[in-house]
């Protein structure tokens, strides 16, 4: 890569850092959320749980057919539930983003793909990823554009 192109890409690098690091304001008061998840072969109902960061989540887990489990990625939540016997788990949603919850007890052929989603708002990882995508696209297109004779400003 030429020095001129490096200079050209510098603002995009700075923009990418801003997208990655800037704190976005979001401060709803934490509440306690009572949610019920019913596990069946090979899905959870509801498939997506939406809470805000800081919320206390009280989850009632039920199984409608066979024994299932619930493992929430990155939250360390793990529970096993048998049909007819509800199970309660509780945790504080202190991390923002989308986290998959999965069946942790082998329950049939599609067991490895039995997942649900816990979306903890504000979903900053997604917002930042979208911003980063636009920055990368713009940077790539600008770098491909032929530089004017003499190169970018400051490189002559």
């Amino acid at each position: 890569m030429t020095r001129a192109r490096l200079w050209l890409l510098l603002p995009f690098g700075a923009l990418a850092l801003v997208v990655l690091l800037v704190p976005l304001p979001f401060a709803p008061a934490p509440v306690t959320r009572e949610l019920t998840v019913v596990a069946r072969q090979f899905a959870f109902e509801p498939p997506v749980l939406r809470v805000n960061r800081g919320d206390r989540v009280r989850l009632t887990l039920e199984a409608s057919d066979v024994v299932h489990g619930l493992h929430v990625d990155e939250y360390g939540v793990d529970a096993r539930v048998e049909p007819g016997i509800a199970r309660r788990v509780e945790f504080v949603a202190d991390r923002a983003g989308k986290f998959r919850y999965r069946c942790s007890v082998s329950c049939g052929p599609l067991h490895p793909f039995m997942t649900g989603e816990l979306v903890v708002s504000p979903n900053l990882p997604f917002v930042r990823a979208v911003g980063l995508t636009l920055v990368v696209l713009a940077a790539t297109l600008v770098s491909l554009r032929r530089l004017p004779p003499g190169g970018a400003p400051g490189t002559t």
Binding site: R40, P109, T115
Partner: peptide, 14 residues
């Protein structure tokens, strides 16, 4: 289909 949370699609595919 496989990584998403939608059980109805998995039922169809299965």
């Amino acid at each position: 289909v496989l990584l998403g949370p939608w059980g109805w699609i998995k039922d169809w595919a299965n």
